[in-house]
Design a protein around this nucleic acid. Structure first.
Lengths: 212, 212
DNA sequence: AGCGCGAGTAGACAATGTCTACTCGATCTT
DNA sequence: AAGATCGAGTAGACATTGTCTACTCGCGCT
């Protein structure tokens, strides 16, 4: 609405208006016309920058992925976390940050993983979550290094699955926790709505119980 | 459309039309008027049975929960699964059934966990998933019985979290796997789109690696 | 027989996404 | 420097949607 807003271009202004609207009113308020209204332009203006409504929503979701990456500290490369305990602690931070983001910005979190609304633009957005997954994989590998002591792979109670698999399973677990909490199922299941014991059980299950 | 359809009442016919439409066209086709069209009535007819569009969608989702319970064999009480290995095998079945349902009926799975569209009716629907959770909890308890050998709680590498927490974490993990696979993220993360290794890693992580 | 009422119909209304015609101001050409 | 060009935003039309409000019809009841 201000002069500075006008300077940044309508595209960014529309995304900003959508983000604000999403946080304030929820996902149902993200109509094309309402976003245009909030940005102070006519309902036909967004079409110059986004071919369709879904593209605008995808841009808003993209902003959310950027915010998530920032909240998790994935913008800067950061220290390598060589020691296992440091990696474990970093994974604790990442997991808590992920759940906190989902809890504090439920509308944005929901939009980010609504593939029906993102449609074609979903593929590119999915790539945005790749750095997060790679970071988790690296940390998992730091905790459980690929032991090269020559045993045959997959024989009995060996080293367990490779870090990629552990990281994906852990990520899915975190995502499920966030989703079910947003849905209110955890309150029903465990009585309280605290995710803390569930988060601890999840991390312990996938990464081992040794460190905290 | 047939005479028998008319006999079962419009309410059930609308739900059936919605289920069929959801499986065939996806969630975007579930408009009130399209469902009414599919059921062969005017667009005002559903209002006699469902006060609002969301209520009709909630009824369709409820049908989905029933189908899921049937697919998982939760309608009949079934044998108690006293032995740990039998319980573990049953959990394998449940997990695979859950993922299979999400994969085979993606539209229904998505609708079932879209709390924004279920609105007020969500609370009742959430209760529908309670039997599933209780079954998982019981099986987890059968695998890891509450050891009463008197050690102080939470002291070091003891018995781990109670079955309720393990069951909830495992359920969240399965749900996250289903969700991320539906979203297409697993293909990006692990290369292949097979959930089998992820499922195995998940079960092993939460239930221990001893049995298969 | 007359009446009431449940159930479905038809139309109206506001709101939405998309499309098209148009306007206006800046930039570029000759 | 005057006129053409084009990007960017406006305004209106159109089909579709959810909801609301008469209205109609058929069945059972007193």
């Amino acid at each position: 609405m201000t002069e500075q807003d006008k300077a940044v271009g309508l595209r960014a202004r529309l995304v900003a208006a959508g983000v604000e609207l999403l946080a304030l009113e929820g996902i149902h308020a993200l109509t094309l016309r309402e976003i245009a209204r909030q940005a102070g332009v006519s309902h036909g203006a967004p079409r110059r920058h986004f071919a369709t409504h879904a593209e605008l929503l995808a841009a808003i979701a993209g902003h959310g992925f950027g915010e998530l990456a920032t909240a998790l500290g994935l913008d800067a490369p950061g220290p390598a976390c060589t020691s296992a305990s440091a990696a474990r602690q970093r994974l604790d931070e990442l997991a808590r940050g992920y759940l906190a983001f989902a809890a504090e910005q439920p509308g944005m979190f929901e939009l980010m993983f609504r593939h029906d609304v993102l449609e074609g633009s979903g593929a590119e957005l999915r790539r945005t979550s790749l750095p997060l997954f790679e970071a988790v994989t690296g940390l998992v590998a730091a905790i459980r290094p690929p032991s090269d002591h020559g045993s045959s792979p997959g024989a009995g109670d060996g080293d367990g699955p490779p870090p990629t698999v552990v990281a994906a399973a852990l990520w899915a677990n975190l995502h499920g926790l966030a989703q079910l909490r947003a849905w209110g199922s955890l309150r029903l299941a465990t009585g309280g709505d605290s995710v803390e014991p569930l988060l601890r059980a999840t991390l312990d299950a996938h990464l081992g119980r040794d460190a905290g």
